[in-house]
Design a protein around this nucleic acid. Structure first.
Length: 308
DNA sequence: CTTCTAACA
DNA sequence: TGTTAGGA
């Protein structure tokens, strides 16, 4: 704690990184050698020094591994999705990033004590300082993701669960409040698979505006029945959500689904970032995974389609 | 304690 | 693909 004069420039030896991420040092070196996955700076004697950004990269690798992606394929994915996230981060000042970390630290402290009152308090304070989108996308969800895939200490699984159920409750609450008298209605469904409920709910929250009401379908929603559901709900659009790498047959399945729908079909989440190349020229539009962009593109898309 | 490569499971 | 062995 005391030696952190410059948080950004602080460097860690491999053993520390291993402790922080739960990855064996030798495995860390194997990733670097075989897949070129993290390239830390070196001391003159050749010892690796990892920056905070390197450690964050290890964590995101862990996230993809947990979603069933082979380590050899993570590199490509990271190269793509880093683009959209990096742009988001570099456009932000260092001091606001430091502020985010402060709030995240407070959040982690509340979680460590399983202190619900404290958690509510921090949650409320964050909301009084930042807009909803920033609160979820830049402060709360990164902690949720870290806790989910990092095994830094015994008990983190419980802390993750504690946060997850707290946030699910709060987000549901907000979703209910958000439903008022919007003119446009959009249906949001998860691509069946391994999506967490919270990710879908947060996406719904971030996509909604004063003009667009989002209706969320349950997690197990079968893709094949969506045309039926849309026939009866008659939304202005159907948005599919996934944070997982798209299966190779996904573009075809989506194209087929799009043909059977009365309304336009859109894709959101990390899957949208990763699949957008294979979907150009198809009926399926990609919203991306960044909150601002998603909302903006959805709005524009609807505007354009309602004119014609 | 770190580094590396080659071979194993 | 992660881990082990062996040497520096």
């Amino acid at each position: 704690m005391s030696t952190r004069a410059l948080d950004h420039e602080e460097l860690f030896p491999i053993r520390e990184v291993s402790r922080l991420t739960g990855i064996n040092p030798v495995t860390l070196r194997a990733w670097e050698r075989r897949y070129g996955l993290i390239q830390p700076t070196r001391t003159e004697s050749g010892h690796r020094l990892y920056s905070q950004a390197d450690i964050d990269e290890v964590r995101s690798i862990l996230g993809w591994i947990e979603r069933g992606v082979a380590v050899s394929k993570v590199g490509r994915i990271l190269a793509k999705s880093l683009n959209s996230k990096e742009q988001n981060l570099t456009s932000r000042s260092d001091e606001s990033l430091a502020d985010f970390k402060q709030w995240q630290a407070q959040l982690r402290q509340a979680l460590r004590g399983f202190d619900e009152r404290r958690l509510e308090q921090v949650y409320g304070q964050v909301f009084s300082s930042y807009p909803q989108l920033v609160v979820f996308q830049d402060i709360l969800m990164p902690v949720w993701q870290d806790l989910r895939c990092t095994h830094e200490a015994f008990g983190q699984a419980s802390e993750w669960l504690f946060l997850d159920s707290f946030l699910r409750g709060r987000v549901l609450q907000r979703l209910q409040l958000a439903h008022e008298q919007q003119e446009l209605r959009v249906v949001l469904a998860a691509i069946p698979g391994q999506c967490h409920e919270l990710e879908l709910l947060v996406a719904a929250l971030l996509l909604g505006t004063s003009e667009i009401a989002i209706s969320v379908l349950g997690l197990g929603q079968p893709l094949e029945e969506l045309s039926l559901v849309c026939e009866r709900m008659m939304p202005q659009a159907l948005v599919l959500f996934s944070n997982h790498p798209p299966a190779s047959d996904l573009p075809k399945r989506l194209a087929r689904l799009a043909l059977s729908l009365e309304c336009p079909l859109l894709l959101a989440g990390e899957a949208a970032d990763l699949a957008q190349d294979s979907l150009i020229g198809s009926q399926v539009a990609c919203l991306g995974s960044e909150g601002h962009l998603m909302r903006q593109r959805l709005q524009q898309y609807l505007d354009g389609h309602l004119d014609s």
